[in-house]
């Protein structure tokens, strides 16, 4: 399958990765090889079985409880303003 430099840049944008030109170049050669390797699955007729999903048999009641480690969590913030995380403006 052909994957162009433009495709790589588009995927990197979706993945929120700022890639260096070297990384773009190596991914432009590596990604098609990986995609080609996994593509043979498309020839398999797997519609004959029911889809297996991850079991979640252990759901708790949805009750709010006070957090006890708020300060430990906020202490990790690269930039904070009291009890808030500080970020750049979303809209400029």
């Amino acid at each position: 399958m052909e994957i162009t430099t433009q495709d790589i840049l588009k995927l990197a944008d979706l993945a929120r990765l700022e890639l260096t030109p070297d990384e773009v170049a190596s991914l432009t050669t590596q990604l098609p090889k990986i995609v080609d390797y996994v593509s043979h699955l498309q020839a398999i007729d797997a519609t004959i079985v029911p889809e297996v999903t991850t079991p979640t048999e252990n759901l708790r009641a949805d009750i709010a409880v006070p957090a006890t480690n708020t300060e430990a969590i906020l202490a990790q913030a690269p930039e904070r303003a009291e009890r808030l995380w500080r970020v750049d403006a979303v809209f400029s």
Binding site: A15, R16, L17, E18, L19, T20, I73, Q76, A77, P78, E79, W85, V87, D88, A89, V90, S92
Partner: peptide, 24 residues
């Protein structure tokens, strides 16, 4: 994403650049 914890790069302008540069 460089916002709540972990390595954070804030050299560019705007929220999306914090994400992209921190992850890179």
């Amino acid at each position: 994403d460089g916002i709540r914890y972990g390595l954070s790069k804030r050299e560019g302008q705007g929220l999306i650049n914090i994400y992209k540069q921190s992850r890179d």
